[in-house]
Design a protein around this nucleic acid. Sequence first.
DNA 1: AAGGAAATCGCATGTTCGTGGTATTTTTCA
DNA 2: TGAAAAATACCACGAACATGCGATTTCCTT
Lengths: 224, 224
Amino acid sequence: MIKTNDKDNFPVNIWLVEDNSSYRKSLASVINSTPGMISSNTFSTCERALKAMETEPFPDVILLDIGLPGMSGIKAIQKFKSYSYDIHIVILTIYDDNDSVFNALCEGASGYLLKDSTQDKIVDSIKEVLAGGAPLNMHIAQKVLQLFAKLNSKKVDYELTEREKEILQHLVSGLTKQQIADKLFLSFHTVNTHIKNIYKKLQVTTKAAVISKAYKENLFRPKE
Amino acid sequence: MIKTNDKDNFPVNIWLVEDNSSYRKSLASVINSTPGMISSNTFSTCERALKAMETEPFPDVILLDIGLPGMSGIKAIQKFKSYSYDIHIVILTIYDDNDSVFNALCEGASGYLLKDSTQDKIVDSIKEVLAGGAPLNMHIAQKVLQLFAKLNSKKVDYELTEREKEILQHLVSGLTKQQIADKLFLSFHTVNTHIKNIYKKLQVTTKAAVISKAYKENLFRPKE
DNA sequence: AAGGAAATCGCATGTTCGTGGTATTTTTCA
DNA sequence: TGAAAAATACCACGAACATGCGATTTCCTT
Protein backbone atom coordinates (compact mmCIF):
# COMPACT_ATOMS: atom_id res chain seq x y z
CA MET A 1 0.00 0.00 0.00
CA ILE A 2 1.20 3.46 -0.74
CA LYS A 3 1.73 5.61 2.25
CA THR A 4 0.41 9.11 2.02
CA ASN A 5 0.92 11.81 4.53
CA ASP A 6 -2.33 13.52 3.72
CA LYS A 7 -4.09 12.51 6.86
CA ASP A 8 -1.16 12.85 9.22
CA ASN A 9 -0.95 15.73 11.58
CA PHE A 10 2.65 16.10 10.57
CA PRO A 11 3.43 18.18 7.55
CA VAL A 12 5.25 16.61 4.62
CA ASN A 13 8.97 16.90 5.17
CA ILE A 14 10.94 17.92 2.12
CA TRP A 15 14.65 18.21 1.61
CA LEU A 16 16.31 20.14 -1.15
CA VAL A 17 19.68 19.22 -2.61
CA GLU A 18 20.69 21.92 -5.04
CA ASP A 19 23.90 23.87 -5.45
CA ASN A 20 22.42 27.06 -6.84
CA SER A 21 21.68 28.93 -3.64
CA SER A 22 19.19 31.41 -5.00
CA TYR A 23 17.16 28.70 -6.70
CA ARG A 24 17.39 26.62 -3.54
CA LYS A 25 16.17 29.44 -1.35
CA SER A 26 13.31 30.40 -3.58
CA LEU A 27 12.19 26.77 -3.76
CA ALA A 28 12.39 26.46 0.01
CA SER A 29 10.28 29.55 0.53
CA VAL A 30 7.65 28.31 -1.90
CA ILE A 31 7.47 24.99 -0.12
CA ASN A 32 7.39 26.51 3.34
CA SER A 33 4.55 28.78 2.32
CA THR A 34 2.58 25.78 1.08
CA PRO A 35 0.19 24.40 3.69
CA GLY A 36 1.16 20.93 4.84
CA MET A 37 4.71 21.12 3.54
CA ILE A 38 7.93 21.95 5.29
CA SER A 39 11.37 22.23 3.80
CA SER A 40 13.20 21.31 6.97
CA ASN A 41 16.64 20.97 5.44
CA THR A 42 18.38 22.23 2.36
CA PHE A 43 21.81 21.22 1.13
CA SER A 44 24.24 22.26 -1.54
CA THR A 45 25.81 18.82 -1.99
CA CYS A 46 24.77 15.19 -1.78
CA GLU A 47 27.50 14.50 0.73
CA ARG A 48 26.01 16.91 3.25
CA ALA A 49 22.52 15.61 2.71
CA LEU A 50 23.66 12.04 3.23
CA LYS A 51 25.44 13.04 6.41
CA ALA A 52 22.22 14.57 7.67
CA MET A 53 20.44 11.27 7.08
CA GLU A 54 22.43 9.91 10.00
CA THR A 55 21.13 12.45 12.48
CA GLU A 56 17.94 14.03 11.19
CA PRO A 57 14.51 12.47 10.80
CA PHE A 58 14.07 11.05 7.32
CA PRO A 59 12.37 13.31 4.78
CA ASP A 60 9.31 12.21 2.84
CA VAL A 61 10.53 13.70 -0.40
CA ILE A 62 13.92 14.84 -1.66
CA LEU A 63 14.16 17.25 -4.57
CA LEU A 64 17.52 16.35 -6.01
CA ASP A 65 19.59 18.22 -8.52
CA ILE A 66 21.34 15.84 -10.87
CA GLY A 67 24.15 18.06 -12.01
CA LEU A 68 25.84 18.60 -8.68
CA PRO A 69 29.54 19.06 -7.99
CA GLY A 70 31.06 16.20 -6.02
CA MET A 71 28.90 13.10 -5.81
CA SER A 72 26.47 12.95 -8.70
CA GLY A 73 22.81 12.91 -7.91
CA ILE A 74 22.49 9.57 -9.62
CA LYS A 75 24.85 7.81 -7.26
CA ALA A 76 23.17 9.50 -4.34
CA ILE A 77 19.75 8.09 -5.20
CA GLN A 78 20.68 4.58 -4.15
CA LYS A 79 22.23 5.87 -0.96
CA PHE A 80 19.19 7.87 0.04
CA LYS A 81 16.99 4.93 -0.78
CA SER A 82 19.12 2.62 1.30
CA TYR A 83 18.03 4.51 4.41
CA SER A 84 14.38 4.02 3.62
CA TYR A 85 12.71 2.76 0.54
CA ASP A 86 9.79 5.06 1.29
CA ILE A 87 11.74 8.20 0.62
CA HIS A 88 10.61 9.62 -2.68
CA ILE A 89 13.21 11.27 -4.83
CA VAL A 90 12.26 13.74 -7.50
CA ILE A 91 15.00 14.71 -9.89
CA LEU A 92 15.50 18.31 -10.92
CA THR A 93 17.57 18.94 -13.99
CA ILE A 94 18.24 21.71 -16.43
CA TYR A 95 18.32 19.65 -19.59
CA ASP A 96 16.83 16.29 -20.42
CA ASP A 97 20.00 14.34 -21.08
CA ASN A 98 19.05 10.86 -22.17
CA ASP A 99 21.59 8.95 -20.15
CA SER A 100 20.97 10.88 -16.96
CA VAL A 101 17.26 10.33 -17.26
CA PHE A 102 17.70 6.67 -17.88
CA ASN A 103 20.17 6.14 -15.09
CA ALA A 104 18.26 8.16 -12.52
CA LEU A 105 15.04 6.30 -13.22
CA CYS A 106 16.86 3.01 -13.04
CA GLU A 107 18.18 3.91 -9.63
CA GLY A 108 14.69 4.44 -8.38
CA ALA A 109 13.82 8.09 -8.78
CA SER A 110 10.08 8.69 -8.41
CA GLY A 111 9.92 11.53 -10.85
CA TYR A 112 11.84 13.71 -13.20
CA LEU A 113 11.28 17.41 -13.67
CA LEU A 114 12.99 20.07 -15.68
CA LYS A 115 14.07 23.10 -13.73
CA ASP A 116 12.17 25.43 -15.98
CA SER A 117 8.98 24.00 -14.48
CA THR A 118 7.03 26.60 -12.59
CA GLN A 119 7.30 26.45 -8.84
CA ASP A 120 3.64 25.64 -8.68
CA LYS A 121 4.24 22.72 -10.95
CA ILE A 122 6.97 21.49 -8.65
CA VAL A 123 4.73 21.73 -5.62
CA ASP A 124 2.05 19.85 -7.53
CA SER A 125 4.58 17.19 -8.36
CA ILE A 126 5.40 16.70 -4.71
CA LYS A 127 1.75 16.11 -4.03
CA GLU A 128 1.57 13.73 -6.94
CA VAL A 129 4.50 11.71 -5.66
CA LEU A 130 2.94 11.46 -2.23
CA ALA A 131 -0.27 10.24 -3.81
CA GLY A 132 1.60 7.42 -5.49
CA GLY A 133 2.14 9.05 -8.83
CA ALA A 134 5.21 9.71 -10.91
CA PRO A 135 5.59 13.25 -12.18
CA LEU A 136 7.39 13.17 -15.47
CA ASN A 137 8.10 15.96 -17.84
CA MET A 138 6.18 15.38 -21.03
CA HIS A 139 9.16 14.71 -23.23
CA ILE A 140 10.88 12.60 -20.64
CA ALA A 141 7.81 10.42 -20.33
CA GLN A 142 8.01 9.81 -24.03
CA LYS A 143 11.66 8.89 -23.85
CA VAL A 144 10.89 6.43 -21.12
CA LEU A 145 8.25 4.83 -23.29
CA GLN A 146 10.57 4.73 -26.27
CA LEU A 147 13.20 2.96 -24.22
CA PHE A 148 10.52 0.64 -23.01
CA ALA A 149 9.41 -0.23 -26.48
CA LYS A 150 12.96 -0.61 -27.68
CA LEU A 151 13.76 -3.05 -24.90
CA ASN A 152 11.12 -5.40 -26.15
CA SER A 153 11.07 -4.96 -29.88
CA LYS A 154 11.84 -7.95 -32.00
CA LYS A 155 13.49 -6.36 -35.00
CA VAL A 156 14.71 -9.15 -37.20
CA ASP A 157 13.42 -12.58 -37.94
CA TYR A 158 16.30 -14.92 -38.59
CA GLU A 159 13.98 -17.73 -39.61
CA LEU A 160 15.26 -20.19 -37.10
CA THR A 161 13.47 -23.52 -37.01
CA GLU A 162 11.79 -24.67 -33.81
CA ARG A 163 14.61 -27.03 -33.03
CA GLU A 164 17.14 -24.31 -33.61
CA LYS A 165 15.30 -21.94 -31.30
CA GLU A 166 15.25 -24.62 -28.66
CA ILE A 167 18.96 -25.19 -28.95
CA LEU A 168 19.60 -21.47 -28.96
CA GLN A 169 17.78 -21.30 -25.64
CA HIS A 170 20.08 -23.82 -24.07
CA LEU A 171 23.10 -22.27 -25.68
CA VAL A 172 22.22 -18.91 -24.21
CA SER A 173 21.57 -20.35 -20.81
CA GLY A 174 25.19 -21.46 -20.75
CA LEU A 175 25.17 -25.15 -21.63
CA THR A 176 27.95 -26.77 -23.66
CA LYS A 177 27.18 -28.65 -26.83
CA GLN A 178 27.52 -31.94 -25.02
CA GLN A 179 25.19 -30.83 -22.25
CA ILE A 180 22.59 -29.75 -24.77
CA ALA A 181 22.89 -33.09 -26.51
CA ASP A 182 22.33 -34.89 -23.22
CA LYS A 183 19.36 -32.75 -22.30
CA LEU A 184 17.61 -33.22 -25.63
CA PHE A 185 18.61 -36.88 -26.04
CA LEU A 186 20.52 -36.12 -29.22
CA SER A 187 23.99 -36.98 -30.34
CA PHE A 188 26.71 -34.40 -29.93
CA HIS A 189 27.03 -34.28 -33.69
CA THR A 190 23.42 -33.33 -34.24
CA VAL A 191 23.65 -30.49 -31.80
CA ASN A 192 26.85 -29.45 -33.47
CA THR A 193 25.12 -29.34 -36.84
CA HIS A 194 22.22 -27.32 -35.52
CA ILE A 195 24.57 -24.83 -33.95
CA LYS A 196 26.44 -24.50 -37.20
CA ASN A 197 23.17 -23.64 -38.91
CA ILE A 198 22.23 -21.17 -36.20
CA TYR A 199 25.57 -19.46 -36.65
CA LYS A 200 24.97 -19.15 -40.37
CA LYS A 201 21.51 -17.70 -39.91
CA LEU A 202 22.55 -15.23 -37.25
CA GLN A 203 25.79 -14.49 -39.08
CA VAL A 204 28.05 -15.06 -36.13
CA THR A 205 31.08 -17.24 -35.61
CA THR A 206 31.34 -17.68 -31.87
CA LYS A 207 29.21 -18.81 -29.01
CA ALA A 208 29.82 -15.50 -27.27
CA ALA A 209 28.45 -13.58 -30.19
CA VAL A 210 25.33 -15.72 -30.35
CA ILE A 211 24.56 -15.14 -26.71
CA SER A 212 25.24 -11.45 -26.99
CA LYS A 213 23.03 -11.15 -30.04
CA ALA A 214 20.28 -13.19 -28.49
CA TYR A 215 20.11 -10.90 -25.50
CA LYS A 216 20.47 -7.67 -27.44
CA GLU A 217 17.75 -8.54 -29.90
CA ASN A 218 15.45 -10.46 -27.62
CA LEU A 219 15.59 -13.58 -29.73
CA PHE A 220 14.10 -15.73 -27.02
CA ARG A 221 11.45 -15.31 -24.42
CA PRO A 222 12.60 -15.34 -20.83
CA LYS A 223 10.64 -17.94 -18.91
CA GLU A 224 10.78 -16.57 -15.38
CA MET B 1 12.55 14.93 -35.69
CA ILE B 2 9.09 14.77 -34.28
CA LYS B 3 6.39 15.65 -36.69
CA THR B 4 3.70 17.92 -35.40
CA ASN B 5 0.61 18.87 -37.23
CA ASP B 6 0.32 22.21 -35.49
CA LYS B 7 1.28 24.25 -38.48
CA ASP B 8 -0.49 22.21 -41.11
CA ASN B 9 -3.63 23.45 -42.69
CA PHE B 10 -5.08 19.99 -42.25
CA PRO B 11 -6.78 19.20 -39.00
CA VAL B 12 -5.47 16.37 -36.87
CA ASN B 13 -7.12 13.14 -37.90
CA ILE B 14 -8.22 10.93 -35.05
CA TRP B 15 -9.69 7.46 -35.08
CA LEU B 16 -11.57 5.89 -32.24
CA VAL B 17 -11.63 2.16 -31.59
CA GLU B 18 -14.05 1.49 -28.78
CA ASP B 19 -16.88 -0.97 -28.42
CA ASN B 20 -19.08 1.05 -26.08
CA SER B 21 -21.09 3.02 -28.58
CA SER B 22 -22.29 5.78 -26.29
CA TYR B 23 -18.79 6.45 -25.01
CA ARG B 24 -17.50 6.32 -28.57
CA LYS B 25 -20.07 8.79 -29.80
CA SER B 26 -19.57 11.23 -26.99
CA LEU B 27 -15.83 11.12 -27.50
CA ALA B 28 -16.25 11.71 -31.21
CA SER B 29 -18.45 14.71 -30.65
CA VAL B 30 -15.99 16.22 -28.22
CA ILE B 31 -13.16 15.77 -30.68
CA ASN B 32 -15.13 17.11 -33.63
CA SER B 33 -16.06 20.18 -31.66
CA THR B 34 -12.41 20.82 -30.87
CA PRO B 35 -10.78 23.21 -33.35
CA GLY B 36 -8.08 21.52 -35.40
CA MET B 37 -9.28 18.00 -34.67
CA ILE B 38 -11.45 15.65 -36.64
CA SER B 39 -12.64 12.24 -35.71
CA SER B 40 -12.98 10.97 -39.25
CA ASN B 41 -13.60 7.34 -38.41
CA THR B 42 -14.81 5.40 -35.43
CA PHE B 43 -14.85 1.63 -35.03
CA SER B 44 -16.19 -0.90 -32.62
CA THR B 45 -13.47 -3.50 -33.25
CA CYS B 46 -9.80 -3.59 -34.14
CA GLU B 47 -10.52 -5.75 -37.14
CA ARG B 48 -12.66 -3.08 -38.75
CA ALA B 49 -10.18 -0.36 -38.01
CA LEU B 50 -7.36 -2.38 -39.53
CA LYS B 51 -9.44 -2.99 -42.62
CA ALA B 52 -9.97 0.73 -42.95
CA MET B 53 -6.19 1.25 -42.88
CA GLU B 54 -6.12 -0.34 -46.34
CA THR B 55 -8.44 2.18 -47.91
CA GLU B 56 -8.61 5.32 -45.79
CA PRO B 57 -5.91 7.94 -45.25
CA PHE B 58 -3.84 7.13 -42.17
CA PRO B 59 -4.93 8.80 -38.93
CA ASP B 60 -2.52 10.86 -36.84
CA VAL B 61 -3.76 9.44 -33.58
CA ILE B 62 -5.76 6.38 -32.63
CA LEU B 63 -7.57 6.22 -29.33
CA LEU B 64 -7.65 2.52 -28.68
CA ASP B 65 -9.65 0.60 -26.14
CA ILE B 66 -7.65 -2.28 -24.74
CA GLY B 67 -10.47 -4.46 -23.56
CA LEU B 68 -12.12 -5.12 -26.88
CA PRO B 69 -13.92 -8.24 -28.03
CA GLY B 70 -12.15 -10.04 -30.83
CA MET B 71 -8.57 -8.97 -31.43
CA SER B 72 -7.10 -7.42 -28.33
CA GLY B 73 -5.93 -3.87 -28.52
CA ILE B 74 -2.44 -4.96 -27.63
CA LYS B 75 -2.02 -7.14 -30.68
CA ALA B 76 -3.54 -4.42 -32.80
CA ILE B 77 -0.91 -1.89 -31.78
CA GLN B 78 1.83 -3.57 -33.78
CA LYS B 79 -0.45 -3.88 -36.76
CA PHE B 80 -1.43 -0.23 -36.76
CA LYS B 81 2.19 0.75 -36.32
CA SER B 82 3.24 -1.45 -39.20
CA TYR B 83 1.33 0.83 -41.56
CA SER B 84 3.17 3.88 -40.36
CA TYR B 85 5.45 4.34 -37.44
CA ASP B 86 4.19 7.92 -37.14
CA ILE B 87 0.72 6.90 -36.06
CA HIS B 88 0.37 7.61 -32.37
CA ILE B 89 -1.67 5.22 -30.33
CA VAL B 90 -3.17 6.25 -27.03
CA ILE B 91 -4.60 3.46 -24.94
CA LEU B 92 -7.91 3.88 -23.18
CA THR B 93 -8.66 1.46 -20.42
CA ILE B 94 -11.03 1.13 -17.50
CA TYR B 95 -8.61 -0.33 -15.01
CA ASP B 96 -4.84 -0.12 -14.75
CA ASP B 97 -3.99 -3.77 -15.06
CA ASN B 98 -0.26 -4.17 -14.73
CA ASP B 99 0.28 -6.64 -17.49
CA SER B 100 -1.85 -4.81 -20.01
CA VAL B 101 -0.01 -1.61 -19.29
CA PHE B 102 3.33 -3.25 -19.67
CA ASN B 103 2.47 -5.08 -22.84
CA ALA B 104 0.82 -2.13 -24.52
CA LEU B 105 3.75 0.12 -23.82
CA CYS B 106 6.16 -2.51 -25.06
CA GLU B 107 4.27 -2.70 -28.30
CA GLY B 108 4.74 0.99 -28.84
CA ALA B 109 1.74 2.81 -27.42
CA SER B 110 2.41 6.52 -27.04
CA GLY B 111 0.25 6.99 -23.98
CA TYR B 112 -2.02 5.34 -21.52
CA LEU B 113 -5.15 6.89 -20.10
CA LEU B 114 -7.85 5.67 -17.81
CA LYS B 115 -11.37 6.04 -19.13
CA ASP B 116 -12.45 7.99 -16.12
CA SER B 117 -10.30 10.83 -17.38
CA THR B 118 -12.34 13.87 -18.27
CA GLN B 119 -12.94 14.41 -21.95
CA ASP B 120 -10.94 17.61 -21.73
CA LYS B 121 -8.06 15.62 -20.35
CA ILE B 122 -8.29 13.25 -23.27
CA VAL B 123 -8.25 16.10 -25.75
CA ASP B 124 -5.26 17.56 -23.96
CA SER B 125 -3.54 14.20 -24.18
CA ILE B 126 -4.00 14.13 -27.93
CA LYS B 127 -2.31 17.50 -28.14
CA GLU B 128 0.45 16.26 -25.89
CA VAL B 129 1.08 13.23 -28.05
CA LEU B 130 1.27 15.37 -31.16
CA ALA B 131 3.78 17.61 -29.42
CA GLY B 132 6.02 14.64 -28.78
CA GLY B 133 4.90 13.87 -25.27
CA ALA B 134 3.57 10.77 -23.61
CA PRO B 135 0.40 11.22 -21.62
CA LEU B 136 0.38 8.79 -18.78
CA ASN B 137 -2.05 8.44 -15.98
CA MET B 138 -0.34 9.32 -12.73
CA HIS B 139 -0.41 5.87 -11.26
CA ILE B 140 0.50 4.22 -14.49
CA ALA B 141 3.53 6.44 -14.81
CA GLN B 142 4.65 5.22 -11.45
CA LYS B 143 4.20 1.62 -12.40
CA VAL B 144 6.25 2.18 -15.49
CA LEU B 145 9.02 3.63 -13.39
CA GLN B 146 8.84 0.77 -10.94
CA LEU B 147 9.17 -1.71 -13.75
CA PHE B 148 12.00 0.34 -15.09
CA ALA B 149 13.84 0.30 -11.82
CA LYS B 150 13.23 -3.38 -11.36
CA LEU B 151 14.53 -4.24 -14.81
CA ASN B 152 17.76 -2.45 -14.13
CA SER B 153 18.44 -3.06 -10.51
CA LYS B 154 21.90 -4.30 -9.85
CA LYS B 155 21.30 -6.85 -7.15
CA VAL B 156 24.73 -8.15 -6.41
CA ASP B 157 28.09 -6.47 -6.32
CA TYR B 158 30.77 -8.90 -7.35
CA GLU B 159 33.52 -6.44 -6.48
CA LEU B 160 35.13 -6.46 -9.86
CA THR B 161 38.05 -4.09 -10.26
CA GLU B 162 37.97 -1.41 -12.93
CA ARG B 163 40.20 -3.41 -15.20
CA GLU B 164 38.04 -6.46 -14.74
CA LYS B 165 34.92 -4.52 -15.59
CA GLU B 166 36.59 -3.22 -18.69
CA ILE B 167 37.57 -6.69 -19.80
CA LEU B 168 34.12 -7.99 -18.97
CA GLN B 169 32.71 -5.36 -21.34
CA HIS B 170 34.80 -6.63 -24.21
CA LEU B 171 34.14 -10.22 -23.30
CA VAL B 172 30.42 -9.61 -23.40
CA SER B 173 30.62 -7.78 -26.68
CA GLY B 174 32.00 -10.95 -28.21
CA LEU B 175 35.74 -10.48 -28.44
CA THR B 176 38.20 -13.34 -27.97
CA LYS B 177 40.91 -13.16 -25.36
CA GLN B 178 43.49 -12.35 -28.01
CA GLN B 179 41.33 -9.58 -29.44
CA ILE B 180 40.88 -8.06 -26.03
CA ALA B 181 44.62 -8.20 -25.47
CA ASP B 182 45.22 -6.42 -28.74
CA LYS B 183 42.61 -3.78 -28.04
CA LEU B 184 43.97 -2.97 -24.58
CA PHE B 185 47.63 -3.35 -25.54
CA LEU B 186 48.10 -6.18 -23.08
CA SER B 187 49.59 -9.61 -23.41
CA PHE B 188 47.30 -12.54 -23.94
CA HIS B 189 48.39 -13.89 -20.58
CA THR B 190 47.33 -10.80 -18.70
CA VAL B 191 43.89 -10.89 -20.20
CA ASN B 192 43.76 -14.56 -19.45
CA THR B 193 44.55 -13.92 -15.79
CA HIS B 194 41.95 -11.19 -15.49
CA ILE B 195 39.34 -13.44 -17.00
CA LYS B 196 40.27 -16.18 -14.59
CA ASN B 197 39.69 -13.76 -11.74
CA ILE B 198 36.40 -12.60 -13.20
CA TYR B 199 35.26 -16.21 -13.41
CA LYS B 200 36.11 -16.73 -9.76
CA LYS B 201 34.26 -13.63 -8.65
CA LEU B 202 31.17 -14.35 -10.72
CA GLN B 203 31.38 -18.05 -9.92
CA VAL B 204 31.21 -19.25 -13.49
CA THR B 205 33.39 -21.51 -15.56
CA THR B 206 32.65 -20.59 -19.15
CA LYS B 207 32.58 -17.56 -21.35
CA ALA B 208 28.97 -18.29 -22.22
CA ALA B 209 27.96 -18.20 -18.59
CA VAL B 210 29.73 -14.91 -18.02
CA ILE B 211 27.93 -13.25 -20.88
CA SER B 212 24.62 -14.66 -19.82
CA LYS B 213 25.12 -13.51 -16.25
CA ALA B 214 26.29 -10.09 -17.33
CA TYR B 215 23.14 -9.51 -19.34
CA LYS B 216 20.76 -10.99 -16.80
CA GLU B 217 22.15 -8.98 -13.93
CA ASN B 218 23.07 -5.82 -15.80
CA LEU B 219 26.69 -5.97 -14.79
CA PHE B 220 27.72 -3.41 -17.33
CA ARG B 221 26.33 -0.13 -18.55
CA PRO B 222 25.15 0.11 -22.13
CA LYS B 223 26.95 2.89 -23.92
CA GLU B 224 24.39 4.04 -26.46
C1' DA C 1 58.64 2.46 5.05
C1' DA C 2 55.83 -1.61 4.80
C1' DG C 3 52.05 -4.29 3.39
C1' DG C 4 48.59 -5.44 0.32
C1' DA C 5 45.83 -5.16 -3.62
C1' DA C 6 45.82 -4.72 -8.42
C1' DA C 7 47.82 -5.26 -12.74
C1' DT C 8 51.05 -7.21 -15.46
C1' DC C 9 53.37 -11.40 -17.82
C1' DG C 10 54.53 -16.30 -18.48
C1' DC C 11 53.88 -21.68 -19.36
C1' DA C 12 51.65 -26.21 -19.80
C1' DT C 13 47.82 -29.27 -20.46
C1' DG C 14 43.54 -30.99 -21.34
C1' DT C 15 38.84 -29.51 -22.99
C1' DT C 16 35.69 -27.39 -25.86
C1' DC C 17 34.70 -24.94 -29.99
C1' DG C 18 34.31 -23.79 -35.05
C1' DT C 19 34.18 -25.51 -39.53
C1' DG C 20 35.09 -28.14 -43.51
C1' DG C 21 32.95 -32.10 -45.21
C1' DT C 22 29.20 -36.25 -46.12
C1' DA C 23 24.98 -38.87 -45.42
C1' DT C 24 20.46 -40.95 -43.80
C1' DT C 25 15.89 -40.44 -42.04
C1' DT C 26 11.69 -38.07 -41.01
C1' DT C 27 8.33 -34.29 -41.88
C1' DT C 28 5.96 -31.18 -44.50
C1' DC C 29 3.32 -29.50 -48.06
C1' DA C 30 2.14 -28.42 -52.77
C1' DT D 1 3.04 -38.93 -54.39
C1' DG D 2 7.15 -36.64 -54.83
C1' DA D 3 10.34 -33.00 -53.95
C1' DA D 4 12.00 -29.84 -50.49
C1' DA D 5 12.97 -28.75 -45.77
C1' DA D 6 14.23 -30.20 -41.35
C1' DA D 7 16.31 -33.17 -38.22
C1' DT D 8 19.40 -36.55 -37.37
C1' DA D 9 24.29 -38.47 -37.26
C1' DC D 10 29.40 -38.87 -38.11
C1' DC D 11 34.63 -37.44 -38.69
C1' DA D 12 38.80 -34.68 -38.38
C1' DC D 13 41.69 -30.79 -37.39
C1' DG D 14 43.23 -26.38 -35.99
C1' DA D 15 41.77 -22.57 -32.97
C1' DA D 16 40.19 -20.91 -28.74
C1' DC D 17 39.18 -21.78 -24.01
C1' DA D 18 39.72 -23.17 -18.86
C1' DT D 19 42.80 -23.73 -15.26
C1' DG D 20 46.62 -25.30 -12.70
C1' DC D 21 50.88 -23.02 -11.28
C1' DG D 22 54.48 -19.08 -10.45
C1' DA D 23 56.39 -14.32 -10.84
C1' DT D 24 57.34 -9.13 -11.12
C1' DT D 25 55.84 -4.40 -11.02
C1' DT D 26 52.95 -0.57 -9.78
C1' DC D 27 50.05 1.84 -6.96
C1' DC D 28 47.58 2.93 -2.76
C1' DT D 29 47.06 3.21 2.12
C1' DT D 30 48.45 3.13 6.67
